[in-house]
Amino acid sequence: MYNCYCFFALVVITDSRGRELKRKSYVRGYMPLDLTEYPSGIYYLRISAYGRQFVRKVVK
């Protein structure tokens, strides 16, 4: 479980091949991201917030 606090953000989860697995918008508050439904592997979180985009690699 990963947590982040933002006013508004769009989060896209992709696998190591670039396939989009989940897309979710968050408005004001913590963004719990539950990856338990996915098998072990490498995932990327693309977070768009405040006019910027961040990419974080997650190894599960």
Rank of each mutant, 00 (worst) to 15 (best):
L21A: 03
R52N: 10
N3R: 14
R56N: 02
I42A: 10
K24N: 09
R19C: 07
F54C: 05
K60Q: 14
C6P: 01
F7D: 14
E20S: 10
L33V: 13
Y30Q: 13
M31P: 07
R23C: 09
P32I: 00
D34P: 08
P39L: 00
M1F: 11
Y43P: 06
C4N: 13
K60A: 01
Y38V: 05
L45T: 05
S25R: 07
S48H: 04
T36F: 01
T36W: 00
K60I: 09
R23W: 03
V59S: 12
M1I: 13
I42H: 00
F7M: 13
Y26R: 07
R19E: 10
T14D: 03
R17P: 00
L33G: 01
L21I: 07
L21N: 09
E37Q: 08
C6M: 08
V12K: 11
Y2G: 12
E20G: 07
L33I: 15
I13H: 02
T36R: 12
T36V: 01
R23H: 02
F7N: 14
D15N: 15
V59H: 04
G41T: 10
S16G: 00
K24Q: 15
S16C: 14
I42W: 04
Y2Q: 12
L45C: 07
R52Q: 14
G18S: 04
R52F: 05
T14S: 15
F8L: 10
V59A: 09
C6I: 09
K24I: 11
Y26I: 10
R23G: 02
F54W: 07
S40Q: 13
V59T: 14
Y43S: 04
I13N: 07
I47Q: 01
R19A: 11
K60T: 09
N3T: 14
G29E: 06
K60S: 03
R46M: 04
G29T: 04
Q53W: 00
T14L: 02
I42G: 03
V58Y: 12
C6D: 12
S48T: 12
M31Q: 13
S40E: 15
T14Y: 04
K57D: 10
M1N: 14
I13Q: 02
D15Q: 03
Y38D: 02
Y5I: 14
I47Y: 03
V55I: 15
